[in-house]
């Protein structure tokens, strides 16, 4: 597994004006993977990307590319290309020349260059746009030019810094699918930065969840969603009910004044833990059949489902369901053993 590593970060520390942005970050990225750095703004995800691109030199730590240490290598000598947040197209060049920029620097002969550029424009769906001024293009088209411009150099790794942030929802969804298609057809590594968890889950092979300059969890989208390692991940990925509980013994946990059967073990007897339940995993039943009962405080229609806030004893629950219970009504809630995730308490919460 380790011989197809493409990028390795070892103990990267980055400071900005005395503020630590990355606190000894280490990460291995495998070849041909779609990796996403996910986290709230200010978590260090863009900084990590810029360290790989060569725009930030870390205070300490090393960057390896294909086994070689490139920590001190300037950006123009690295075999990675970047799609920037605000596209950063060259305003004095037309679409063709923007895409050709990297190849012109390599002094490629005109015929080959033309072929490569046109090929790339076709790949991103901009055939026939060669002579257009980039300023007359829509946001989505500019983004495609930026992607073509980066990919035409055949980088082994493409870095994307929140490339879809400025697009509207529908276009963003289209581009997500398109990016995934491009990554698979070119068979290269994509490292993608976003704060949008849905985007991360849709496209990635591996998601790296970050917070406060450190990695919180690395895993497949399913792992991250179903088995969050700590409360931050659980809270950040989708919505969650996070409640304090007591692990009475293996497979038995007490929370909200009730004992529940769960699938977790290996905790200390009577350890205080955090219990995570996804809002869509709570079943609404008549009060008499419920493990917990509560009163519906409000109901919000979210399109695919309803979201209800339910007050029970001293905890508030979020429940998502396709059927709404009327506000003010007493309901019962059931939670199956598989839907309960137990985590060690983190000192933060």
């Amino acid at each position: 597994m380790d011989n197809n590593l493409i990028v390795s970060l070892k103990n990267i520390v980055v400071d900005f004006d005395g503020q630590t942005v990355l606190t000894g970050l280490s990460l291995d990225i495998h070849d041909k993977e779609f990796v996403t750095f996910l986290g709230p703004s200010g978590c260090g995800k863009t900084t990590t990307l810029r360290v790989i691109g060569g725009f930030i030199e870390p205070k300490s730590g090393n960057v390896f590319f294909d086994g070689k240490d490139i920590t001190r290598l300037p950006p123009y000598k690295r075999h990675v290309n970047t799609v920037f947040q605000k596209y950063a197209l060259f305003p004095h060049l037309n679409v063709f020349e923007n895409v050709a920029f990297g190849l012109r620097l390599q002094k490629m002969d005109e015929k080959e260059l033309r072929k490569r550029v046109l090929e790339m424009l076709e790949l991103v769906g901009l055939k026939g746009f060669e002579r257009r001024n980039t300023l007359t293009l829509s946001g989505g088209q500019q983004q495609r030019v930026a992607i073509a411009r980066a990919l035409v150099n055949h980088p082994r790794v493409l870095l994307l810094d929140e490339p879809l942030g400025a697009l509207d929802l529908k276009l963003r969804k289209e581009m997500q699918i398109e990016l995934k298609r491009i990554q698979q057809s070119l068979d290269i590594t994509f490292i993608y930065v976003t704060h949008d968890q849905e985007e991360a889950l849709t496209m990635s092979d591996t998601v790296v969840v970050m917070n406060k300059g450190a990695i919180q969890q690395i895993g497949s989208p399913q792992d991250i969603y179903n088995e969050p390692e700590n409360a931050f991940v659980a809270d950040f990925i989708g919505e969650s009910n996070i409640i304090d509980g007591i692990m009475q013994r293996d497979f038995y946990v007490e929370f909200a004044g009730q004992e529940f059967v769960c699938v977790d073990k290996g905790f200390e007897r009577n350890e205080i833990v955090e219990v995570i339940v996804r809002p869509e995993d709570i079943q609404i039943v008549p009060p008499i059949q419920g493990q917990i009962t509560g009163i519906v405080e409000n109901v919000i229609f979210k399109g695919v489902h309803f979201e209800m806030h339910v007050k029970a004893a001293n905890t508030e629950w979020i429940i998502q369901s396709t059927q709404a219970a009327p506000v003010g009504e007493m309901i019962g809630m059931r939670i199956g053993p598989d839907e309960i995730h137990i985590m060690h308490r983190t000192e933060e919460s």
Partner: peptide
């Protein structure tokens, strides 16, 4: 001139000389 345009040029393989003649000077014309 947005700094990211200069970074984009470096990213695409432009050394200081190329950044100057292919990006900075044309954009400052």
């Amino acid at each position: 001139i947005d700094s990211s345009v200069i970074e984009a040029a470096q990213d695409l393989g432009a050394n200081m000389f190329s950044v100057l003649f292919r990006v900075l000077i044309p954009l400052s014309m």
